[in-house]
Design a protein around this nucleic acid. Structure first.
Lengths: 197, 197
DNA sequence: TTTAAAACTTACCGCTTGGTAAGTAGATGT
DNA sequence: ACATCTACTTACCAAGCGGTAAGTTTTAAA
């Protein structure tokens, strides 16, 4: 079965899971959107869980390859660039952020899915990046992680809020906010990294 | 129909919607957990949508009454106290945060549910609180909102991540993080409010 | 003590769900 | 030419879904 077709199907299934969640879409609905029958879809992926699992795995691996700046750059600069890149990725597509946020919410039941493990290395990498900043070299792991998590939260929470914020403040209001966001984020990062923990 | 019973049922339904989402729980499952039959539950609330709507409404009204500090306090202090109170509320119960986060994710389809409207006044109140801070008096609405949203993101994202973080870093790891979080959050707020926008 | 409303139960209903079983058309390799 | 494999289709299934209809018990005010 052509790898391209498989990838194409996963490309199309991803936004459906992102928008409606695992329990919110049926395999029949997905198949319909993809232009084939439910049984054809099951033929390709075996089960709904497996299909979803592959969508999740793709996202995980995709996340492992974000690092826009050279290793020898200034640590503060490097962390800032990395987090801004993370935010900018949401402008392209919020599917990954939405799906991972849903995993976070469902993790009490679904226990340890693919998402958790990639997150470990991802977070540990970020902790290391924080500790490379002069002011933060002797921060505890918990302190560094708290900062990291606050910044990730700022980015990802905003990432999933576009529909709601547009609903509240209108298109213009949201656009103004979206335009102001990156520089405000940069300021937030600089402000905190400039302080001691 | 006794108001107390109604409230009790909503109290018990809330965590189920929080943990499994609207599409993830059936009315039969809820009824079972509440110790009555599906039909008895439907008798009380009419439909699943209406039951969920009432859960949502309760959360909205509950949010409108958080303001721990007197109006005449120092603006910076006041905003900090408010946001810390918001974080501390998650320690008591994450149900509200989880449900509202799910609403954020589903808002593309569910359009304008109860959650959106309460959020408007809530966010506008926070914008006003930011603009009361000396450095921020002449910030634009978009700038103030960007900051507010970043801080809310930091708080709420952490609020829903306990199961995942415990899974990654273990109970001890999570406890250390949870202990470090409030003071780190306070530092983050102070750092940013101390700067100009 | 009667009356009426509230709080249920039992019995359904049509529809959707995820999944299985068995067969088939068309390409590909030998 | 034959066999194999991929990519499907048609037909079906039991279980679960949200919801309706109608009857029964419980509670409590007149």
């Amino acid at each position: 079965m052509a790898q391209d077709t498989r990838e194409r199907l996963l490309d199309q299934a991803e936004p459906l899971f992102a928008e409606r969640g695992f329990y919110g879409v049926s395999i029949a609905a997905i198949a319909n959107e993809l232009g084939l029958t439910k049984q054809a879809l099951l033929h390709h992926f075996g089960s709904k869980e497996k299909l979803y699992g592959e969508v999740l795995k793709r996202i995980s691996t995709r996340f492992e390859t974000i690092d826009p700046t050279p290793v020898d750059a200034d640590p503060t600069q490097r962390l800032t660039a990395f987090l801004l890149a993370l935010h900018m990725q949401n402008a392209t597509s919020t599917n990954a952020t939405r799906i991972l946020m849903r995993e976070l919410l469902d993790n009490k039941r679904r226990a340890d899915t693919a998402g958790t493990w990639y997150l470990k290395t991802f977070l540990e990498g970020l902790i290391a990046k924080v500790k490379a900043v002069p002011n933060w070299t002797d921060a505890s792991d918990a302190e560094a992680l708290a900062l990291v998590y606050q910044l990730l939260g700022a980015i990802n929470y905003f990432g999933i809020s576009e529909p709601t914020l547009t609903g509240i403040f209108g298109n213009q209001g949201y656009e103004a906010l979206n335009a102001a966001f990156p520089s405000q984020l940069e300021q937030l990062i600089r402000a905190r990294l400039g302080q001691r923990p």
